[in-house]
Design a protein around this nucleic acid. Structure first.
Lengths: 202, 202, 202, 202
DNA sequence: AATGAATGAGGCTTCATTCAT
DNA sequence: TATGAATGAAGCCTCATTCAT
């Protein structure tokens, strides 16, 4: 009944998987639970995906895509500090908006590290690269060395990750909101110091 | 049959559990695998621990204890920036020394959030509190407001967590070593800015 | 793969459970054995029933139902002695017809007494009540006090239980057949004496 | 510590086994529980008994012995009805005095029927034979046929068993006390009828 | 005589997956 | 396209028993 095309079904399963992974962890994300969340049955899941792993591959793609959206979608800015701050803020806001996405992402990256090494790193690498490019573009007119760009990318990621861990652990949105601001100021003050120390290179 | 006293066996199981959790995640940490890692069999595990959960409770205690050791064991310093930097460095070095401990800790906190809520947060809270106290003592003679201590604690944790995630994902020790320095400088520059802005309060 | 609907499968499992309980006792009635007896595998059992306990609940219902059938299905009679004798005979014949049912019932009542208290007694109570009602109806036109009905119910149950224990222990059908007659005459002579002594009450 | 001779230890284990069997059933009577109840440890049990089954064999002997005590210990009487009634009363009083003994006995007989056939019947047979002999002696001077003795033995056993089942199920001592009297009167009235019908044989 | 430590077998249950309709 | 039914592997845990001290 309710004949739904496979493509749509797949999307449903992906979204369902994100929710279930967030709620129950990777290993708690059983086919039964995912199917239930997607209002389908287990056999249907295996009709759309040959294996659970195939479904998870699509979930990876979905997560990576969302990261790119968020990073590239942040308002274009012309200075490195502005761009970095806005990207960081964008990622943190995304985390704040969607705890499920946040939790699922952390689960997936962690799981992939254990299981398939490469794939987990792939998501991380992609996001890194996207950030790096965005920062490069923003500072195209400035005398900023690649080392600074790299470091900034890393610090941005560190602050975003640290924010994510804390937010997931405590789950208090109003606290997290305040911490967003702190993290932005941390990035600001570090970049200011860093740029002040490095301009000689230019 | 080795005839090892239960107390020692328990320690073996705890260490084995840390390794297995790091390698396979919480849900992948099956009794079989833990027993195998501890060079025992599953029945022996249940001779030492009534249930898997009981073992994990001891793993929690172990992890929390190690955190306290690291934080309280950092060289005593007399200024807030020094103390904060050394604690951060101590935690990151601990992570660097023992990837298994790092991975297991992140798994446990994450798992506990899903499963029992309180207990996972307990580890996190304890570590937070220990850091806060250490920072308070270090800045006892200085005019530092509690807000600054709190923020510093949070930033320290964020940087440590972010470092941990990155280090776990890439697993490259020499890169991580460099990033340790970056993170320390991030903390330094932010604290400098923060303290410069806030002394009016005193 | 036979593809039998769940409803039928459930019935198979109930029957299988009765056989296995009779043969191996309650605690010997393992899922493995029950599944084997039902020509299924253990996973199938858990496809039909969430837990072993759920299956046993159905077995209880089945047993209680059979009792009611036997008691209410005995030919209607108009005097207390006739009704009592026919019910007793019916129950004993049922025992004789189905040693498995008999054994399983005794196991279940005994087990339930230890485990859940209430439920085992429930079966017993139900049967008691059904007998009491039947005897009341049969003696509706006679001057019989409730006390006599109660005692008659108890004596009937005692004789049925005693018969069951003996029949289960020796398992000799021809001997049991003779003992059925003896038990009926025991009930007859006692009731005759009892009714002769009590009519003053009316 | 507390070096206790093996013979005493064995007696402790037998008594402990009776209690545990009564409380948890045959299959619930694990070595651990029995040892605990006997204030010993599991290894000690296997020091006294090669196997659990060996212990249970002693429990059988114990139960059979207690039956003989009760039956032969009933006051000597000179008529069949008196002797039968007093033996029945003695057995029922024994049941009433010691629910553990009662429950364990029923468990053991039932278990033995399933497991080893012979042994369960052996206890039952022994008790039967003891009763038969007692009744024969009591009616030595009377013109009573062996058939009547056999039937009386059977009816006595039936009433005792039925009483036991009911008493175990409900566990209400005051109710059981009343039912003891009813059962005695049942035996009386049946024997009176039976003897009145059969004297021709003499 | 006594007891901690050790173990293989088997208990119930859940999983991802496949088959048949 | 959709779904009930089926299954082997593996999960945690408990058992009776034996070993070493």
């Amino acid at each position: 009944m309710a004949r739904i095309p496979v493509a749509q079904r797949r999307r449903d399963f992906i979204e369902a998987a994100v929710e279930v992974i967030a709620a129950h962890g990777i290993d708690g994300a059983t086919t039964r639970r995912i199917a239930e969340q997607a209002k389908a049955n287990v056999a249907m899941l295996h009709y759309c995906y040959d294996s659970k792993e195939d479904l998870f591959a699509d979930v990876y793609t979905f997560v990576a895509g969302k990261y790119r959206e968020v990073i590239e979608g942040s308002d274009p800015h012309t200075t490195l500090p502005d761009a970095a701050r806005e990207i960081l803020r964008g990622v943190m806001e995304c985390y704040l908006d969607s705890p499920s996405f946040t939790a699922a992402t952390f689960e997936l990256v962690n799981w992939a590290r254990r299981q398939h090494g490469d794939r987990g790193i792939a998501v991380y690498d992609q996001a890194f690269e996207t950030v790096r490019k965005a920062l490069q573009e923003a500072s195209a007119g400035d005398p900023v060395t690649p080392e600074v760009i790299d470091e900034a990318t890393y610090v941005l990621a560190t602050l975003a990750d640290g924010f994510g861990v804390n937010w997931l652990t405590y789950g208090d949105a109003s606290v997290a909101q305040a911490q967003m601001e702190v993290n932005c100021s941390v990035l600001d003050s570090w970049l200011a110091t860093r740029l002040a120390a490095a301009p000689a290179k230019a």
